[in-house]
Amino acid sequence: MQDGERPSEVIIERRGTAGIIRLNRPRALNSLTLPMIRAITEALDAFAGDAAVASVVVTGEGERGFCAGGDIRALHESARAGDGLAGAFWREEFRLNHMIAFYPKPYVALMDGITMGGGVGLSSHGRHRIVTERTRLAMPETGIGYVPDIGATWLLPHAPGEAGTWLGLTGLDIGAADAIHARLADLQIASSRLGEVIEVLSILPLGSAPSDVDAVLQALSEPPAEGQLQRNAATIDRAFRFDSVEAILAALAVEEGDFPAETRRVLLTRSPTSLKLALRLLRDGRRSISLAECLRRELGACLQMLHNPDFFEGIRAAVIDKDRNPKWSPSSVEAVEAASVEHFLKPAEPPLLL
């Protein structure tokens, strides 16, 4: 890099037989921009067609996060300007999520540190998902007046019981053990050994099967401790089995203990519109037959979000004014009309092509 030249937001390299993709916005927790989405897609295409690449590793620079999701400030600005960038971002991001889910070579995501939203999309759709003692995973969208996307309405319904519903509605973060329990990750490896992971993968023979990569990673892994989702599984399943947010809140109110009380308190701070739409999308996802179906439904909802006051208010409170005090409209789940939720379910035009 020449003096004065901006560093690349995505670093692409080859190490032995491993193709490496490094997200390189550490000060922004490697949050994704449209050029980053395009660079990752281009790199994956190239590695897929390169006979000298046995596996692909995706990691984040810096010690704080793998990827905190999409650059929501940029999405907010695009929505305000009506320039179409937000829609283009989601379309290309969702195509990338689908590509990762069906990638032809072993795809290894190192989910070290903060892994949220779009970061979950870059990792949890992959074949080999590694978490560490520093992992904090979340789908925090209901807290910013948005909804879980990146195929989360396919991933979360496949978690045991109602763990995915809890994750999608509360937006709270979980650690390594619960990420594995929720089937969003596979193995825990100490952060101090991630360099060793890359070194071992770099000497994998060409043509290695996913089972060969599994064996390598398993040898470096450590058993996770029990997490809060496992400890509270019965409570979560009882309270979140309902198909209305009102019923979930009522069920939490009669559960005993700190966990249901805190869960209910958190839900009451989230966008009521987002809660109702997220629950609808999660239930629709449970009945869906493919990731593609969920991504198409999510894109329609995302595009409608560009006209939703809570989307602007949530991002204002979280990243612009940073007062952490959004004023939702409507302000309660009881005031959210069914017709307004249906409005978000309009199919995207043109349809998402995968």
Score class of each variant (00 low, 15 high):
16 G>F: 05
147 V>F: 07
324 R>G: 11
166 W>G: 00
13 E>V: 00
11 I>T: 11
27 R>C: 02
338 A>F: 12
239 A>W: 01
98 H>T: 07
267 L>A: 01
33 T>Y: 13
144 I>M: 15
351 P>K: 06
283 R>S: 12
82 G>I: 09
244 S>F: 12
55 S>N: 14
98 H>A: 15
1 M>P: 09
273 T>N: 05
210 P>T: 02
315 I>H: 08
175 G>Y: 01
283 R>Y: 07
290 S>C: 05
350 P>S: 09
155 L>H: 00
203 I>G: 02
183 R>M: 00
271 S>N: 08
74 A>Q: 12
89 F>L: 10
339 A>Y: 00
38 R>L: 06
62 G>E: 12
23 L>G: 04
23 L>T: 07
269 T>A: 05
77 E>V: 11
145 G>C: 08
265 R>S: 11
64 R>Y: 11
303 L>F: 13
5 E>R: 04
155 L>R: 13
97 N>E: 07
4 G>P: 15
119 G>H: 03
65 G>D: 14
49 G>C: 12
126 G>W: 07
200 V>G: 00
349 E>H: 10
347 P>K: 06
198 I>F: 04
160 P>I: 13
69 G>P: 14
95 R>E: 05
67 C>P: 01
291 L>E: 05
118 G>Q: 10
145 G>M: 06
131 V>Q: 07
265 R>F: 13
307 H>S: 14
159 A>E: 10
39 A>Y: 04
160 P>D: 05
335 A>Q: 09
253 A>T: 05
131 V>N: 04
105 K>S: 03
312 F>P: 10
114 I>S: 08
335 A>M: 09
188 Q>A: 01
164 G>S: 09
284 D>E: 15
16 G>E: 10
116 M>R: 13
317 A>G: 08
59 T>N: 04
285 G>R: 15
127 R>A: 10
182 A>C: 11
16 G>M: 08
8 S>M: 04
18 A>T: 08
57 V>D: 11
63 E>F: 09
204 L>S: 11
139 M>A: 12
350 P>A: 05
156 L>I: 06
95 R>A: 14
6 R>F: 07
101 A>K: 05
211 S>E: 14
269 T>R: 13
324 R>L: 14
316 R>K: 15
327 K>W: 03
5 E>T: 14
56 V>W: 09
124 S>N: 07
45 D>M: 07
126 G>A: 15
124 S>R: 02
31 S>L: 04
249 L>F: 00
271 S>A: 13
269 T>L: 12
286 R>M: 06
117 G>H: 07
52 A>H: 00
14 R>M: 10
87 G>I: 00
72 I>W: 10
268 L>Y: 03
327 K>Q: 14
339 A>C: 03
16 G>A: 06
249 L>C: 08
284 D>S: 09
255 E>A: 13
90 W>A: 01
64 R>E: 14
123 S>T: 08
185 A>I: 02
115 T>P: 11
130 I>D: 04
295 L>S: 12
343 H>D: 11
64 R>H: 08
67 C>I: 03
53 V>M: 11
205 P>W: 01
329 S>P: 00
274 S>F: 05
23 L>N: 02
72 I>C: 06
325 N>E: 13
5 E>Y: 06
337 E>P: 01
244 S>V: 12
19 G>H: 01
44 L>A: 09
33 T>D: 06
197 V>F: 03
270 R>W: 11
298 E>R: 06
353 L>H: 11
29 L>C: 10
276 K>C: 15
38 R>D: 04
149 D>K: 03
